[in-house]
Write a protein that binds this DNA or RNA. Structure first.
Length: 930
RNA sequence: GGGUCAGUAGCCCAAAUGGCAGAGGCAAGGGACUUAAAAUCCCUCCAGUACGGGUUCGAAUCCCGUCUGACCUACCA
């Protein structure tokens, strides 16, 4: 056996050992080990890109691995799986650019990722590995889509969920949808059409980001601020396309409300709340004045401030509003048409760009404000968006910033209807206040007119809504920013839809028994590019002619040729991990209840199944919202037993790195940088460089490869360093030079057990430290109890950096002591083992243990031994330190004060003045106030 | 423009409910060992907590304002 800490030999040895012995296999319900309480700890699974991992990626994986290993030693049956988010744009884009089939690049990338993760000693149960692009997996993604397609949302449905909570609203099978008699009377096609309108998955014409040069639709993230594709810088156009949509908006309220029960970081909850964007307000109906085609038309607006209705001095329609051409007066028609066309030309981004200047045109038409029967002019302006509310607003320039800007630009009337607290100007005051001029004093135009004067804003809102509702002039309502989920992509590398179209255009869902609808192997998976913005999209699958056409009972059907977005596969993978090889069902119900169920410490059932979910904050909204949505549908349909997928969420910070740039602003690789007098210079050109801490990224040329670090220091050192850098949730810069610190620590741990090789001959010398005996040094033992306590508590709260610091303290003391008991070293190895598993397994074995340290029960500590008998406390006079005293830990306040005032410096300060008050902070300080 | 979080030695970071600003690591300096270097070991140095107010016996911690940085969001009526 080697005397040296040869991490390059022993780390692969233990990784092989764990693999071969199935050390980290999680027991399924029914197996004996499943009697233990379960713990499900999950990482955001990665998208395996071609570049492989850099040291920033595994930060969260290391953190969860430590917790998984810790929980195993605490007697839990731990589910800790890993898989691949393997469908999606980057693989396909790479394939398009390099001519390699995405299946091949994906497999290569996945293998690289797995190799790199195994090198880190992560204790995944690899038997559960999955990839979203495998047919056995996406079969169930398609199955869920069918469930969603075959459901409708019944907002009235009252039921009690498995957790015993009363719930209003549920997804229900489409055949339970009540069909109105008049629809029924029109026969089966009408019934089918009615159902189609209510399904949770439906087809609709919606505006998409269409990039003809790339031949595809792009997601918003793929479109630059200039309205071009972020790859290739090609123009992108907004155009309507018939797309699959998922009715996530039906779940807006439940998605919002259930956030409350989740143990998630507040900022993430806030981001989800903002994204859902619930606002309570009212619809108000304005009648259009005059004769002609516009007569009798109603403009319905949405407002969150019905209390300011008396201040509505004009109205604005979005340029796309259907009433614009109808109400525009002939003399204004030309001007309005020009404006509307201009607005259409502009991209969404141009329109919302921060050019403060408001634009708009007057239509010539007027409407009547229902609350005071005054005429208000109707304008068209692009600051009103067609996609929110009703696409039209009542403008209250007195108390809305945007309306005020517009009114000032066009010289429209501004009136005060809300009185702000004293000292603030009413003009542009948008917060709650007290209603005034509603109506103005002395004006009382008609009987039954609403009077809001002197009412605080919340009450004025209620009163006005009631007034509107009684007269059928509007109603209270709630709006959401959340839109239905656009679910089609004109791409190859994704899940095919299990949908067929008949020759007459009717939609037929593929039967569950026929799943999966396999993605066809096609030669040409490129999208068809064009310079013509009006070119029809041709999806790659639409060219797979054999696949596309299906014959059934003499009828010819055409398959849906779009694919699902990348989010689809990641919406439910946490469920599949529980039962990854089940060929009969997505998940066995008993297995689902075992892994996803559970209770909080106080005994109440948890709303979420995964006990801990760790990943970066960049998926705060989309992935986490989509997964919650799917989970709730599955919950309503009885497939899962918890209302939420992820009980506790933790966001790790980002590892940053120094990025260097030359005077032209080009990034420079680290290898080409040298330091002179702490200033970076280019090694070859000698130019002075600028340095900034930025995100670690290939494009910034500041990535650090884990393979190189592992080769030089070992995986245990890398794991330890990443955890030691700072708090897990914070972003912090990588400094390779700092690694040596934790590496020295591990070297010290090694030498505690294995003595340095004697001069010359290593082979015959003892390989255990002969100093290890059975005598315990009191000081080291006490410090060990303190260390066990601190490490236990710190792991539980994810403060690995301070846990490591405490272990360094212990090793530094232990190394100084000549007397060290074997069991002290063993207990120390146990608390170190979740963080640095390889070295601990090796030393554990060398100390004579036959079984893995991974399941050795976590050592306990004696609280009495963690407390010192005597403590030093500071003595303050009037808050200033004047001296220190050492007292017994259980000294009374009076004893402490007596001792304190005897200190010469303290006595001098007191100078005979009586002590008015003595504040004693136990074990810390005493403050004497005179 | 709005929101969220953060700012402590040259660097990374610690400091329960406010209670002695320092646990730990890196770097730097000195020393021991060595022919020398590396490695190892020992010792030392350095800030008053971004800035300005306030509350308090006492503030890195709480409150207000300002500055800087990161992230989210962006005409959502």
């Amino acid at each position: 056996m080697s005397h040296a800490y040869d991490f390059n030999a022993l780390e692969p040895k233990w990784q092989r050992h764990w693999d071969e012995h199935g050390t980290f296999r999680a027991a399924q319900p029914g197996e004996p080990e499943s009697d233990a309480p379960k713990f499900y700890v999950l990482d955001f699974f990665p998208y395996p890109s071609g570049a492989g991992l850099h040291v920033g990626h595994p930060l969260g994986y290391i953190a969860t691995d430590i917790l998984a290993r810790f929980m195993r030693t605490r007697g839990y049956n731990v589910l800790h799986p890993m898989g691949w988010d393997a469908f999606g744009l980057p693989a396909e884009q790479y394939a398009v650019e390099h001519g390699v089939h995405p299946r091949i690049t994906t497999r290569n990338n996945t293998e690289t990722y797995q190799r790199q993760l195994k090198m880190l000693g992560l204790s995944y149960d690899w038997d559960r590995e999955l990839a979203t692009c495998d047919a056995e997996y996406y079969r169930w993604t398609q199955w869920i889509f069918l469930k969603i397609y075959n459901s409708w949302y019944d907002p009235e449905y009252r039921w009690t969920d498995p957790a015993g909570r009363p719930v209003v609203g549920a997804a229900r099978p489409i055949d339970k949808l009540p069909i109105p008699p008049d629809v029924k009377a029109q026969g089966p096609p009408a019934i089918e059409a009615y159902r189609a309108e209510h399904r949770l998955a439906y087809l609709a014409e919606v505006p998409v980001n269409w990039c003809p040069a790339l031949g595809t639709v792009l997601s918003n993230e793929e479109v630059t601020n200039e309205g071009r594709s972020n790859r290739g810088d090609q123009p992108v156009y907004r155009r309507p396309l018939r797309q699959w949509m998922l009715r996530i908006t039906e779940y807006a309220d439940r998605l919002l409300k259930d956030l409350e029960f989740l143990d998630w970081p507040e900022p993430i909850k806030l981001m989800q709340r903002n994204w859902i964007g619930r606002s309570a307000g009212a619809y108000v109906d304005f009648a259009i004045e005059g004769s002609g085609p516009a007569a009798g038309q109603i403009i319905r607006v949405f407002t969150t401030r019905p209390d300011t209705l008396f201040g509505a001095t004009y109205m604005v329609l979005a340029p796309e509003h259907r009433l614009v051409p109808i109400i525009t007066r002939p003399e204004r028609r030309e001007e309005v048409r020009t404006y509307v066309n201009q607005a259409k030309q502009k991209s969404e981004l141009d329109r919302t760009a921060d050019n403060k200047q408001k634009t708009g045109v007057f239509t010539g038409a007027y409407a009547v404000n229902p609350v005071n029967r005054k005429r208000v002019p109707i304008w068209v302006a692009d600051y009103v968006l067609i996609s929110y509310g009703t696409g039209s607003i009542m403008a209250v320039p007195g108390h809305d910033t945007r309306d005020l800007e517009f009114a000032e630009t066009f010289g429209l009337e501004v009136v005060a209807v809300v009185k702000p607290p004293t000292g603030r100007d009413w003009r542009g005051f948008v917060d709650d206040g007290v209603s005034v001029n509603s109506p103005p004093d002395g004006e009382d135009h008609f009987s039954g007119q609403c009077v809001l004067n002197d009412l605080p804003t919340p009450e004025a809102k209620c009163k006005l809504i009631r007034w509107l509702e009684e007269r059928d002039l509007g109603e209270g309502t709630t709006q959401y920013k959340l839109r239905d989920w656009l679910f089609s992509r004109q791409r190859y590398w994704g899940e095919p839809f299990p949908i067929l179209y008949g020759e007459d255009g009717r939609i037929v869902a593929v039967d569950e028994s026929e799943l999966p609808v396999a993605l066809p192997e096609i030669e040409d998976f490129r999208p068809h590019a064009s310079d013509d913005p009006d070119a029809q999209p041709q999806t790659p699958l639409s060219r797979a002619t054999d696949w596309l056409t299906v014959r059934r009972g003499g009828e010819v059907f055409r398959r849906e040729a779009n694919t699902m977005p990348q989010w689809a596969g990641s919406c439910w993978y946490y469920l599949r991990f529980c039962d990854a090889r089940n060929a009969q069902a997505l998940i066995d119900p008993q297995v689902e209840r075992y892994w996803m169920g559970g209770k909080l410490p106080d005994g109440t059932p948890k709303v979420g199944g995964v006990d801990l979910y760790v990943g970066g904050a960049e998926h705060a909204v989309l992935h986490l919202l989509y997964a919650r949505f799917w989970h709730k549908v599955l919950y309503d349909l009885g497939v899962v037993s918890t209302p939420e997928p992820f009980h506790r969420l933790f966001n790790q910070g980002m590892i940053q790195a120094h990025a260097f740039r030359d005077p032209r602003g080009m990034y420079v690789e680290h290898e080409k940088v040298e330091f002179r007098d702490n200033t970076p210079y280019h090694k070859e050109t000698g130019q002075a460089l600028t340095s900034a801490v930025e995100k670690m990224s290939k494009s910034l040329k500041n990535v650090v490869n884990p393979d190189a670090i592992i080769h030089e220091y070992g995986a245990d050192t890398l794991r330890l360093y990443e955890m030691y850098m700072g708090p897990l949730e914070k972003s912090k810069p990588w400094n390779t030079q700092d690694i040596i610190g934790v590496h020295r620590f591990l070297q010290r741990v090694w030498r505690l057990v294995v003595p340095p090789a004697p001069e010359g001959q290593a082979a015959s010398a003892p390989v255990l430290n002969p100093a290890l005996g059975d005598v315990r040094d009191e000081h080291v033992e006490r410090l060990l109890h303190k260390t066990i306590k601190k490490v236990t508590e710190d792991i539980e709260r994810f403060a690995y950096n301070t846990a490591i610091a405490q272990m360094i303290v212990w090793i530094n003391e232990a190394a100084k002591t000549k007397v060290l008991a074997r069991d002290q070293v063993e207990r120390f190895l146990q608390i170190l083992s979740p963080l640095a598993p390889h070295i601990c397994e090796e030393l554990w074995q060398r100390l004579g243990h036959k079984s893995s340290i991974a399941y050795a029960p976590w050592p306990s500590y004696d609280a009495a031994l963690t407390r010192d008998d005597a403590v030093e406390i500071a003595v303050q006079v009037l808050g200033k330190i004047r001296g220190r005293i050492t007292v017994a830990a259980d000294a009374t306040d009076d004893q402490i004060v007596e001792l304190a005032r005897k200190i010469e410096a303290v006595a001098r300060e007191l100078a005979g003045r009586p002590i008015k008050r003595a504040i004693v902070a136990r074990g810390r300080l005493v403050n004497l106030v005179v």
